[in-house]
């Protein structure tokens, strides 16, 4: 029987050794291509993470990504702009990438943060936590802010990513192939327009989620605001339009407004602004389409100018 144990141990060690070499080798190849993507999401995220040098920076979720047209911002304000938003993210992600924008000698002149209705209830939704982990893991090996964040939020995931490089780049291969093979760029300084509309039904009731407030997300929101203010950068907070019937603030929105108010910032609430609740302005219930985004970006720019925010 001892011979059987030894045979098993020997073969297991050989298999693990091969797997280690394959993991490091393939993982390094994926890492190289991931970090050097010429076009597409990863390239945009990499820019947003690694010291974006534009004057106006926008943070938020997919609603930010598809709403704030950077070209219109540049035309309106005469300042360069970059949309640092990311699909499926919330302020936890935004607060992790914010230091990258403040590290160099060039400081942004304006920061816009787009809040979603579940902004600080978001992480209490387990799926949300998984999405955040999958966003952060590819950067934990190279970015210390993300490593710290992962240590706070998903220490086990961080350890797994350190053990296996393939795991750190889990689910990235197809998007890398896609981004290397594409010829056109639908990403205009981080802004991704959504042409057309998938809306069929009239606006529905907003079903307020019953998630409690996620204290960690709330802390990160406070950190975000404080960091921006400590750097003397004007901050505009917006709740952009949703394709829904008018609704009362849920707890997340209520607490967000309170946190902003404590820092003397008004949350510009367009959530159910009747002027935007039209089929032809939305791509789906959560995202404005190209036409809606253009109209909304213009309104925000005009309000920024009207309120003299850039002069503060």
């Amino acid at each position: 029987m001892k011979a059987q144990y030894l045979k098993f141990a020997k073969k297991l060690i050989i298999l693990l050794a091969i797997m280690f070499v394959v993991d490091r080798g393939l993982g390094s190849i994926i890492q190289y291509y991931f970090e050097n993507e010429p076009l597409g999401d990863a390239a945009a995220f990499a820019h947003a993470i690694n010291n974006p040098t534009e004057d106006v920076l926008i943070y938020g979720s997919s609603r930010a990504v598809h709403t704030y047209d950077t070209k219109i911002i540049t035309d309106s304000l005469g300042l360069s702009a970059y949309n640092c938003g990311r699909n499926g993210s919330n302020v936890v992600y935004g607060s992790a990438i914010l230091p990258g924008a403040l590290e160099g000698s060039h400081k942004p002149k304006l920061i816009i943060i787009d809040i979603v209705s579940k902004e600080i209830a978001w992480r209490s939704n387990k799926d949300g936590g998984d999405v955040l982990a999958s966003m952060i893991l590819p950067y934990v090996l190279t970015n210390e802010h993300f490593e710290e964040l992962a240590m706070d939020l998903f220490p086990k995931e961080l350890y797994k990513a350190k053990v296996s490089k393939l795991y750190a780049y889990n689910s990235q291969v197809l998007s890398i192939i896609r981004n290397y093979s594409r010829k056109d760029n639908d990403n205009i300084n981080g802004y991704q327009p959504l042409p057309g509309s998938k809306i069929i039904n009239p606006p529905q009731e907003y079903t307020a989620d019953r998630d409690g407030i996620d204290e960690f997300s709330k802390e990160r929101l406070e950190y975000f605001i404080k960091t921006v203010q400590d750097n003397h950068i004007p901050l505009v907070a917006v709740l952009s339009p949703m394709y829904t019937k008018p609704f009362e603030d849920n707890e997340s929105i209520r607490v967000c407004k309170q946190v902003f108010a404590e820092h003397n910032i008004e949350l510009w609430d367009y959530a159910s602004d009747p002027k935007y609740v039209q089929k032809d302005l939305f791509y789906d219930v959560n995202h404005l389409n190209t036409k809606g985004a253009e109209m909304f970006t213009r309104e925000i720019m005009s309000r920024i100018k009207q309120e003299g925010i850039l002069k503060q």
Partner: peptide, 19 residues
């Protein structure tokens, strides 16, 4: 045999859903 093991484990690590 070993190629199959390594391939399956590589697939697990690179596209498996570990939530």
């Amino acid at each position: 045999r070993y190629t199959a093991y390594v391939l399956l484990m590589t697939l697990l690590l690179s596209i498996g859903v570990f939530n």
